[in-house]
Structure formats: structure tokens, C-alpha cells
Simulated assay, not measured.
Amino acid sequence: MLLSSTAASAGFFSSFSQPQALPDGAQYQDGTWTGSPVRQYYGYVQAQAHVKNGKISSIDILRAPTDRRTSRYINSKALPMLEREIVMAQNTNVSYISGATLTSQAFLNSVHDALRKSLK
């Protein structure tokens, strides 16, 4: 997935950054927590985190770009991998998926927002 230099200079990447680490000793409150939709170059990504017994039990993908075949393919591969990594790590401090950098950034930011909302 290549982006033109015009896209880069137009500021499409400026709003992305690795989510800040959650505070040490932070505990998640049980429930279902919805992250904000995060706009990336090809559309919005939004996630929902499910917390049970203070642990991330699963992540739902509420929104991801689907209007391009390439987007559907990338999302079908990258998002399930990110979901598994987040549940195993119990936080959003996971690596981006190669070839899906924009999707990874947007997804991790949305999940991070959901988890921030769940902090006790």
C-alpha cells in the first residue's frame, strides 16, 4: 500500500501517533467500552473492547474501510491479528502489522480510547 507524496504532505499522517501507555497498575472496569472512530487515509476505524474480570476478553471491529477490495483484504488479515495481540498483551502496546500501518494505527488508537474509558 503506497501513498503518494501529495497524500503525505496533505497531513494525512499527522494525527497518528502510538497510543500513550496506560498508567502502571491500571485496572480495567468490566463492561463493554467503545472507542472513538479514528479517521485514516481510506476511511474510519472504530473498535469496541469487552472487559471481563478486569481483563480484556475480546475486541469487536465496529467500523473499517470496505469500499476498496484492497482495504477489505488488508482489514480481514490485519485486524484479527491485532485483536489477538491486544488480548494476549492486555494493552495496546503491540506492533503494527506490516503493510497495514494506517489501519494498525487507527485501530490501536480506537482500542486505546475504549480502554481509557474503562479505567477504574
Rank of each mutant, 00 (worst) to 15 (best):
V38S: 07
S14D: 12
S14K: 06
Y44C: 07
G35R: 02
S36A: 12
V38I: 14
Y42D: 14
S5D: 04
Q40C: 13
S5V: 02
S5C: 00
L22K: 05
Q46G: 03
Q46V: 02
Y44V: 02
P37H: 05
Q20T: 10
G43C: 10
G11K: 01
G31M: 13
T34H: 06
A7K: 06
T34S: 10
P19T: 08
A26G: 12
S15P: 13
S9F: 10
G25I: 04
G43T: 10
A7P: 05
R39W: 03
G11N: 06
P37I: 02
T34I: 14
A26P: 11
Q27Y: 01
G43V: 07
S14Q: 06
G43M: 08
G11I: 00
S17D: 14
R39I: 03
Q29G: 03
S14I: 01
F13T: 06
V45E: 09
D30N: 07
A7H: 08
Q18Y: 01
A8E: 04
Q40E: 14
R39D: 09
D24N: 03
S14F: 03
G43K: 08
L22A: 09
T6P: 00
V38F: 00
G43W: 03
G11R: 02
P23S: 07
P37A: 12
Y44E: 15
Q40R: 09
F13H: 07
Q29S: 06
Y41I: 12
F12Q: 13
S15I: 08
G31E: 06
G31F: 15
R39N: 05
R39K: 13
L22R: 03
D24I: 01
P23Q: 11
Q29A: 04
S15K: 13
G35P: 11
S5K: 08
F12C: 12
D24T: 03
Q20I: 12
Q40M: 12
P37V: 03
G31K: 11
A7N: 09
S15Q: 15
A8Y: 10
S36V: 05
Q27I: 10
Q20E: 14
Y41D: 10
G31A: 11
Q27H: 10
S9A: 06
A8Q: 07
P19F: 08
A10C: 14
Q29K: 04
Q29F: 00
Y41W: 04
S5G: 00
G25K: 05
F13V: 05
G11Y: 06
